[in-house]
């Protein structure tokens, strides 16, 4: 049995202790997904599972058999960057670059959540079908991704530029 990772079928590891994160980084050399804390506290390891964002450090790889994983390496179309990747460059949404893949994957997952109207902690009306696309909403929803260089403003600007129209 296998896990689909960026479109390729990957065997489930024999050792059930192997996290999805370590499977990506050590076995598959997909090192774009980062290990910042290995305990779900920083978001650097965020990947998309069937389109939903999770922290791969707390995910035992064996649990994800049959699921489809997208990592930062799976976002570009060949040489062409995903629009959010380009927006991160344009808005200087990173400095050291270590939290960046996690921020980008998280934002893509978040955009899907916004599209389907998932409320957040700061959403006023829980029953509204549409969630307002505001800076405060984005900041709350991206708070699971730490950045210690302090690129937060650029990150939110990049997300706003990329997904603002989608949500509007």
């Amino acid at each position: 049995m296998a896990i689909e990772i960026n479109g390729s079928q990957v065997p489930v590891p024999d050792d059930p202790r192997v996290s999805l994160l370590d499977l990506l980084r050590e076995s598959l050399h997909l090192t774009g997904t980062k290990k910042g804390c290995n305990q779900g506290a920083c978001g650097a390891c965020t990947v998309l599972v069937d389109g939903e964002r999770i922290v791969s450090c707390l995910a035992l790889a064996v649990q994800y058999e049959g699921r489809s994983i997208t990592t930062i390496e799976g976002l570009s179309d060949g040489d062409a960057l995903h629009p959010l990747q380009q927006a991160f460059i344009d808005h200087d949404g990173f400095q050291c670059g270590y939290c960046t893949p996690g921020q980008i994957c998280s934002a893509i997952g978040m955009a899907a959540e916004l599209r389907r109207g998932l409320p957040s902690h700061v959403t006023g009306d829980l029953t509204a079908e549409r969630v307002p696309f505001s800076r405060v909403e984005l900041q709350e929803r991206m708070s699971g991704n730490l950045c210690c260089c302090g690129a937060h403003n650029g990150i939110i600007d990049a997300i706003t530029e990329t997904f603002g129209e989608v949500a509007a």
Partner: peptide
């Protein structure tokens, strides 16, 4: 509670 990623899991 927690973060969006953790709530998804």
């Amino acid at each position: 509670g927690a973060s969006a990623q953790i709530r998804n899991m």
